[in-house]
């Protein structure tokens, strides 16, 4: 789980010079800048979009069913209509909110719980570590999609339940990553030093281990973001995801698959939204990782040509 080759050994040494402003760094990397803008847009749309579209996302007009994207039908007709005559544009906006409100909490929950448990287990080792790892094994060995289907059939497919089940399914990934990092760090000199001074283990974990493990964990989280959106979509395919009249991108793709031959825009556009968002998140995560790593940050300050050997994605990441 750990890749020692790329681990900075002097990570705790504070930099003497003030680090360059992050937006200046971002401006130097065109790819990351575009990704940041796309993500910012997606988040803005997700948060504020519903204020502008009103009930457009659910307003049906059976007479306007399956209109192709065109410029003639006004702003809401730009991306065409679905089979119920609803504006696909308005639905994409509405779905952005639902999608993120499922994906972000799910990822945050599993990130928080998984990393906390993992660092705790890795730092203390012994029985605690063993138990935590076996719990992770148990969760991982359930086929997650199928268990999600069972649980959602039993407890009704509400957005909250989807968040919970997706979060639980992904906890082991963070748990294992965090454990590996913290098990490796606990024998380091600076941790030993802190321990000899009688620092409580809680503080050591938060002050010394977390800052080093965080970049890796955040990278895993970005990739999980993609996994959660895709799983949510697969659930809709199996008929048990987000329930209408709520709408998510995954649900739009799943419902639109019947119309791939006749009305491509219904399934393709939300698919593009998923791909754009996750690709942007991945690119930006790689950049953040570099920018938050004191040992590597200098690379970003160099002109483009010379900073060739940056990893797009660190090897620690997990699917």
């Amino acid at each position: 789980m750990t890749d020692l080759a790329s681990r900075p050994t002097d990570a705790v040494t504070p930099s003497r010079t003030r680090p360059p402003r992050w937006w200046l760094l971002l401006g130097r990397d065109r790819g990351a800048a575009v990704a940041a803008v796309v993500l910012a847009l997606v988040f803005l749309v997700a948060v504020f979009g519903r204020l502008f579209i009103g009930d457009r996302a659910v307003r049906q007009d059976l007479g306007a069913s399956l209109r192709p994207p065109s410029l003639d039908q006004g702003f809401y007709g730009l991306l065409g209509t679905d089979v119920l005559g609803r504006s696909v544009l308005a639905r994409l906006v509405d779905a952005a909110g639902t999608t993120l409100s499922v994906a972000v909490p799910a990822v945050l929950c599993s990130l928080l719980i998984g990393s906390a448990l993992g660092m705790w287990a890795g730092y203390h080792g012994g029985v605690r570590e063993n138990v935590a790892m076996r719990v992770a094994d148990v969760i991982l060995s359930f086929p997650s999609l199928l268990i999600a289907v069972v649980v959602l059939y039993v407890f009704a497919p509400s957005a909250l339940n989807i968040v919970l089940i997706l979060a639980v399914a992904r906890i082991p990934v963070y748990l294992r990553t965090a454990r590996a990092e913290s098990a490796e760090l606990r024998s380091r000199l600076f941790v030993d030093a802190a321990r000899t001074f009688g620092t409580p283990s809680r503080h050591i974990i938060v002050r010394h281990i977390l800052p080093i493990a965080l970049p890796t964990l955040l990278t895993v989280a970005t990739l999980d973001f993609c996994f959660v959106m895709l799983t949510e979509s697969s659930l809709s395919f199996l008929g048990i995801g987000i329930q209408p009249p709520d709408v998510s991108w995954g649900l739009m793709v799943a419902q639109g698959r019947q119309y791939l031959q006749t009305a491509w825009w219904i399934a393709v556009l939300p698919g593009v939204a998923i791909v754009l968002t996750t690709v942007s998140a991945t690119v930006l995560a790689a950049w953040v990782r570099l920018a938050t790593d004191p040992a590597q940050r200098w690379r970003l300050t160099l002109p483009r040509k010379r900073r060739g050997d940056r990893a797009a994605v660190p090897p620690e990441m997990i699917a």
Partner: peptide, 16 residues
């Protein structure tokens, strides 16, 4: 689910 073609859309129309 899947009782007839388009049932999900029909349910949405009825709800609306």
């Amino acid at each position: 689910n899947g009782q007839f073609a388009g049932i999900a859309e029909v349910a949405e129309a009825l709800q609306y």
